[in-house]
């Protein structure tokens, strides 16, 4: 084990992908991690189930939808960690499907998946820049690339956080910001949904998070990688054809 522990903040600390990534990281080196989650005790329990309990030194109840608490929550976590080397932003909720979503649902979804995490990432970026740099992984989604009828509010929010994260990378040269665009990942969030082609398990996604954290420069990642060429084609398809391929009928 190395000398200095890697100090990690997980936004969306209940995320299976993020917790598996922390578990994987901590098997390789000394890791100290704080989980920021809507239900902190549940996130701690989940961390233990997924083998990350050794790394988790703290947890804080944090709801991405509470506008005025992002700075303070991040600051308190950084204080406990004694600094911040890495952050994983894995906040995500699929919410209701598109058609029936009312104004309140859309607001909640956009805030939870985009506005809240973006605000927290701004606080993280500032904390890291002030300390000379750091590494951030943001879990976006291929859903960010082109709206589908079945989940366009989610896609729109992911699109926003995706663009925000890429902008962050440009604005803070001392930061390495990795934007991960997984396809369908089998997790609690997607349980019961119909799987898409190129579906992967949570461990594969976690592996990608760990790999991205170690990358030397900012970039976007597709998980699995084959989704990059696949979506290069899909994004170019005319609308009617896209809807057929995307199963949006």
């Amino acid at each position: 084990m190395g000398a200095d522990p890697l100090r990690v903040l997980v936004l969306g600390g209940g995320s299976e992908i993020a917790l598996r990534a922390v578990a994987r990281l901590s098997s390789e080196r000394d890791v100290r991690c704080v989980l920021a989650a809507r239900d902190a005790p549940a996130a701690r329990t989940r961390a233990a189930e997924l083998g990350a309990e050794r790394a988790v030194v703290g947890a804080t109840t944090w709801d991405a939808r509470e506008a005025d608490r992002h700075d303070a929550a991040v600051a308190a976590a950084v204080e406990v960690l004694g600094g911040l080397d890495a952050a994983i932003c894995a906040v995500g909720s699929l919410g209701h499907a598109s058609g029936e979503a009312g104004a309140a649902d859309v607001w909640s979804l956009m805030t939870a998946n985009a506005a809240g995490p973006a605000a927290a990432l701004a606080a993280v970026a500032r904390a890291m820049s002030a300390r000379g740099g750091g590494s951030i992984v943001v879990l976006s989604s291929v859903a960010a690339l082109r709206p589908r009828r079945s989940n366009y509010p989610y896609g729109a929010a992911k699109s926003a956080i995706d663009a925000f994260a890429r902008g962050l990378a440009g604005a803070h040269p001392s930061l390495r910001v990795q934007v991960l665009r997984p396809g369908f990942v089998r997790t609690r969030m997607t349980r019961g949904l119909e799987e898409a082609p190129f579906t992967i398990g949570p461990d594969r996604a976690a592996r990608a998070v760990v790999r991205a954290l170690g990358a030397r420069r900012s970039r976007t990642w597709y998980v699995p990688w084959v989704l990059r060429p696949v979506f290069a084609v899909l994004r170019a398809l005319p609308g009617p054809l896209w809807r057929v391929v995307a199963g949006d009928r």
Binding site: R32, G58, A75, E79, L81, G82
Partner: peptide
């Protein structure tokens, strides 16, 4: 106060925070 919870596991805090 805005705080982070540090659990005490097996008789010690998982890490002594700088202020807690």
């Amino acid at each position: 106060a805005e705080v982070t919870e540090v659990p005490i596991v097996a008789g010690v805090p998982t890490a002594w925070p700088r202020a807690g």
